[in-house]
Write a protein that binds this DNA or RNA. Structure first.
Lengths: 200, 200
DNA sequence: TGTATTGACATACGGCGTGTATGTTAATAA
DNA sequence: TTATTAACATACACGCCGTATGTCAATACA
């Protein structure tokens, strides 16, 4: 069966995204040229500009893709936990672990915010924050928390996990550092939510 | 009195740093050209490459300068507090507030890590982290904490403050959001350090 | 004091990369 | 079957970084 035109386009988009992910992760956004990128995918810059507008558009698409995968994974892990509390803590631990991936670290955590500008204004890179917010919101809706500024708490927890992840990735022995970071994060999250102001 | 040569050089370095701070903060690192930068300072690119090596070197110098100012300010605020506990919390609040400054936000928090690479490997942008680490270390030395993984806690607190700062800066009404972020951060830090594992 | 030398900075040049304008070809529609 | 659109390739113009070279004043030295 001959492929339809829309299918072909999806295929080229996929090739470009895959090539961009590899290139951005290994050399960084600024140091990768569109020529090399597209050549590695067996295409030219014409396809790229036609599909993604410009270089920033391509990065935005890549960030969005990775962010979606992270959110999916975090949600599965959170849903597999016994309680909402455990789910929130497990998501945080998973987030720290996922940031060990160079693609996540370099593209989503470093280049993404710098190139795309203020993260909170962009639709991408917000799904993980949305997951944290949803977890905190659920806790409050269940009556397990009260008077929580959900936004503030979400951003604090996300930032803590993010920086912990960067620390882990930069450490001499990431695999040994990871559990320390996850344990400290768990203590932090529990300590915050155990504050008398929040307890129902 | 005629200025000596070293004084002249310090003066040009200062001019270039000041011009770079303004340009990087307003347009971002990538969108700033060395020609415009130096022309605004009444100089040419020759002076820049002679003094800072390359564009990254200039950014590193700017980040270092701002970071030093932040650390000084945080240290003053921390030293003015009554206790070590209050000092640590006050430094965190001050950090969140300082990140409202576009120079801090854009240059130190966004472009710095992306362009200069892994923050923990760079001497700059670590003084604020050093301050947090020093505060936690002091608490432990005083016998007020035990069995704290100082590194993990420092990175968690720093990351939380950083992300909170970005959230505040991006909010519709930063001045109204700031106290919420600071309050939530205080609760988080207190909650973490109040964990039974840490209490002496 | 006169000269040599160094160093701070300016100028000139080459190369690379982005973005756009134009061209080409294959698929859909009439 | 033909006209049109859209996906993609090719060609060009512009800007910017980094380096190589040049210039001139300040210091060192005799």
């Amino acid at each position: 069966m001959a492929k339809t035109r829309a299918e072909m386009m999806q295929e080229t988009r996929g090739k470009l995204l895959a090539s961009a992910r590899a290139a951005f992760a290994s050399h960084g956004y600024a140091a990768t040229s569109m020529d090399d990128l597209t050549a590695a995918a067996g295409l030219t810059r014409g396809a790229l500009y036609h599909n993604f507008g410009d270089k920033k558009g391509l990065l935005a698409a890549v960030v969005d893709q990775i962010d979606a995968e992270m959110a999916d994974r975090a949600r599965d892990i959170g849903a597999g936990a016994g309680s909402l509390w455990d789910g929130l803590l497990a998501e945080g631990a998973a987030y720290i672990e996922m940031a060990l991936d160079p693609e996540v670290q370099r593209i989503v955590l470093l280049d993404g915010p710098a190139v795309l500008g203020d993260p909170s204004r962009w639709p991408s890179q917000n799904r993980c924050l949305d997951a944290t917010r949803a977890a905190v919101t659920a806790l409050r809706a269940k009556g397990l928390l009260r008077e929580v500024d959900i936004e503030a708490v979400s951003h604090l927890l996300n930032g803590a996990a993010l920086n912990a992840a960067l620390w882990v990735a930069a450490s001499d022995d990431p695999l040994a550092t990871l559990p320390k970071a996850q344990e400290a994060f768990r203590l932090m999250a529990e300590g915050l939510l155990a504050q008398p102001q929040f307890q129902a």
